[in-house]
Design a protein around this nucleic acid. Structure first.
Lengths: 270, 270
DNA sequence: AGATATTTGTTCGTATGTATT
DNA sequence: TAATACATACGAACAAATATC
């Protein structure tokens, strides 16, 4: 045994003790790709060659390739010069794949904000003084969408999404890929969660104003490179946002329950 | 039927504008499952029925099922009463799938610890006073593995993993599924990263003692329900751990470079 | 324990679609 | 336009696994 380091990550877990042949083939192809350090864009052998190399029929190989495709690791093109190509897993696909896990493992608004409350302050603390003029301008541009009160429910919903986009954009500017992904994943959960969708379809007086104020103060701190203020502002921002969301969660739930008896009455408290 | 909320998460992103037939079939089957609110363990129609329902050949349907299987959403069994069954995505599979994303989007030790430094203090703050005797005993049990200095390199490596297991176990006790997953994912990255593996194969005098001390103090705070102390201890723990790891990273890198011979980064220049 | 029925798993041959030249 | 090289899809057959009688 040479004191070598075991092979890189990438092998699937022993999720199922016995893997089917296509899954074994998928793992084998993946290892084959990793071994030769292939990079995104590199072409895999044609189906015929894979069939020969692994002594498997076309159908089996194709199923294996589909497995890799589902994981976002390859894409395939038809035609001459076509075939399977190594593909960099997109953030969107990674989010979707991870989202499946939380489809069964359900989460609450509180769960999401518990993480946002610590992650986003750390994010802006890291970003303070690091953003260039273009990035700051992009952030300001997003903020314009909710400068004034919304006139319709649809606009209100767009505004809520734009507010989230502000945070997603901040995360995109982080040099830390983990931070980028985690924060943006949490935001995508908020956009997708049924409860949140219901909340975003209501007029919430305090939310827009409070968010806009926090965010413009945040921009000032970021521009000035004031790490401490940026962190403090974001912490307060997340704290109040969570409070408002959880309060609305109760309201929405109550309405949902009463809707079960009486048809939509268009009830809008406050 | 009414001004209803759009369908739940679970649909794949428009990653590729035009989807292949098996991918469309996979999406269709997934929607079919979601629509009827099927739960883990429920059986999908047999291949033959799916072939008829979607007017597709066996091979195509099988590729679609493989896609869902790769995402961890179904498992299949042969024999009478067999078929495809809805499956709860396991944490291990979710980790592996997300790990693929970071295979291309490479991360450093600093990136990981930047998140651990904020997540884990929040974790223990939440856990303070919430753990029962059994859980505390489990934690103490894990700690026994690194009570004394390691006698061999192999034992040292096992100790480093046990130290990480301590944190993974803490995360498992969190009622927040997001917190559970995020923390445990970060730990799995540490275990898998090549640099870390190299570091763990060395004797690091301070690391074991410092970690053990922090962790026993942490247990006291958790038992006493002292939220503030627990958070402070974990924060200091993460801070020193990061410092030691990053210092070792330099040492290991220096040794790696002086080792000459071995080809860098797995690239194979032709 | 053994036979049988059911269901997935695998293979092969062929035909079609698609993009390059 | 035609030829080429590749993936894509179909259908029929056979193999393997596993539950039930």
């Amino acid at each position: 045994m040479d004191p070598d380091i075991p092979p890189p990550v990438t092998t699937l877990p022993a999720d199922a003790p016995r893997l089917s042949r296509p899954q074994r083939a998928a793992a084998a192809i993946k290892d084959w790709v990793v071994e030769r350090g292939m990079r995104p864009g590199d072409r895999l052998p044609a189906e015929a060659e894979l069939m020969e190399h692994f002594s498997m029929a076309k159908g089996t190989i194709r199923e294996a390739l589909r497995v890799l495709e589902a994981q976002g690791l390859i894409r395939t093109r038809t035609g001459p010069g076509g075939g399977a190509f190594v593909n960099e897993v997109s953030e969107a696909r990674a989010r979707a794949l991870l989202g499946n896990y939380f489809y069964f493992n359900e989460i609450s608004i509180g769960d999401i904000y518990e993480l946002r409350r610590v992650l986003e302050p750390a994010l802006v603390s890291q970003l303070a003084g690091q953003l260039d003029a273009g990035q700051l301008a992009q952030l300001e541009n997003v903020m314009m969408a909710y400068e004034r009160p919304a006139k319709t429910i649809e606009e209100a919903e767009r505004q809520r999404h734009a507010e989230l986009d502000f945070h997603a954009l901040l995360a995109e500017f982080s040099p830390n890929p983990l931070m980028r992904f985690q924060v943006r994943f949490l935001i995508s959960l908020l956009k997708d969660l049924t409860v949140c969708r219901r909340i975003y379809r209501r007029e919430i007086p305090g939310l827009r104003r409070s968010g806009r104020d926090y965010q413009s103060r945040l921009l000032l701190a970021l521009r000035a490179g004031d790490e401490k203020s940026a962190r403090a502002i974001m912490r307060a921002h997340m704290h109040t946002a969570q409070a408002i969301m959880e309060q609305q969660e109760v309201v929405v739930l109550r309405q949902f329950l009463s809707d079960a008896e009486s048809p939509p009455g268009g009830r809008t408290p406050e």
